[in-house]
Each structure stands twice: as C-alpha cells, then as structure tokens.
C-alpha cells in the first residue's frame, strides 16, 4: 500500500497515547450495547441465523479496537507560523489547515472517559461548520496551554469573517 496523504517535511505533534484507552473504552461500550440490542431477534425468534448480525458487528468492533492505537498515532497537529494544521485518520485521512485569524472560539470538552485518564478534547471553531478541527487526547494542562496559545495567536492575527 502506498504511503498516506501527508504534508512533506512536517513535524507533527502527536496526542497522548492514553487516548487509545478512551477510544477503546468508547468502542467497547457502544459495541456491547449494539451487540445486546441486535442479538434480541435471535433470542426471541430462535432463528440461529439472526445471530450473524451481532457476530459480524462484534468482528467489526474488534478490528476497530485493534486498529485504535495506530489511529491514535495518526492524529497529529502542528502550529505553523500562521496556521494550525491538523490531521487524522488511517483509512480516511484528512489534513486541515486553519489560519489562526479564522478562529471564532475554542472549546475544551472532557467526557467521563477523558476525565478518568486526565485528557481533554480541544475544538477549534471557525465560521465554516465543515472545518471540523477537533484535537482529542490532550493532557489537561496541554489543552489549556494550547487554547491560550491559540487565542493569543488569533488575537494577533485577527481577521474579519
């Protein structure tokens, strides 16, 4: 397989390896709920073939869980001179560049799983909904520092809409 879409000579900053725990936890919860829900028809009707649905779902989730560490390693961001570059995805790779001046607001979110391992998620919001820069798996301290840096950078390069 050919190499993935990337910027030449880019130095990406990765996110915390602990984020894999959050991802796996989330996948496990969703997977278990869905497996239970989809296995109801098999129990109720007694038709054994209905069990194929939860089984295939389980395989998909298993593959997903096994790929999680690699997917977490694929997440990266980079503070360039004038813009923030973010990349994520193994199968579906996405690289976004957002000029700092385009920032409308920065969110920091912590889900229950994030909190358990002391991580935060930083969301960079522009006027375009499709920008979608969400940097997960930042240690709390880093997330707040990054937010302050971004706000300061945006302030110094403020642009119109």
């Amino acid at each position: 397989m050919t190499e993935r879409l990337d910027l030449p000579d880019a130095e990406w900053r990765g996110v915390s390896r602990k984020y894999a725990v959050v991802e796996v936890g989330g996948l496990l919860i969703v997977g278990i709920i869905m497996a239970i829900a989809t296995s109801i028809p098999a129990f109720v009707s007694g038709i054994i073939w209905f069990a194929a649905i939860p089984a295939s779902l389980g395989i998909i989730f298993l593959i997903n869980i096994l790929l999680t560490p690699r997917r977490v390693r694929a997440i990266g961001y980079m503070l360039r001179e004038d813009d923030l570059v973010f990349r994520r995805g193994l199968m579906f790779r996405r690289v976004v560049a957002v000029p700092y001046g385009r920032m409308q607001l920065v969110d920091i979110n912590r889900g229950p799983l994030d909190r358990a391992v002391g991580l935060s998620e930083l969301k960079f919001v522009t006027a375009a909904a499709s920008t979608g820069v969400v940097i997960p798996g930042l240690p709390e301290q880093d997330a707040e520092e990054l937010r302050d840096t971004l706000v300061a950078l945006a302030e110094s390069r403020r642009a119109g809409l």
Binding site: L5, R93, V95
Partner: peptide, 15 residues
C-alpha cells in the same frame, strides 16, 4: 480573504 480553512482528504479507493 474569505476562506475559513482548507483540507485534503483521501479514502481507501483514492489512496
């Protein structure tokens, strides 16, 4: 001057 951000994407097929 109005552009908010730019991205490039690829899926398995495109890759």
């Amino acid at each position: 001057a109005r552009m908010q951000s730019v991205s490039m994407n690829e899926g398995p097929l495109l890759r």
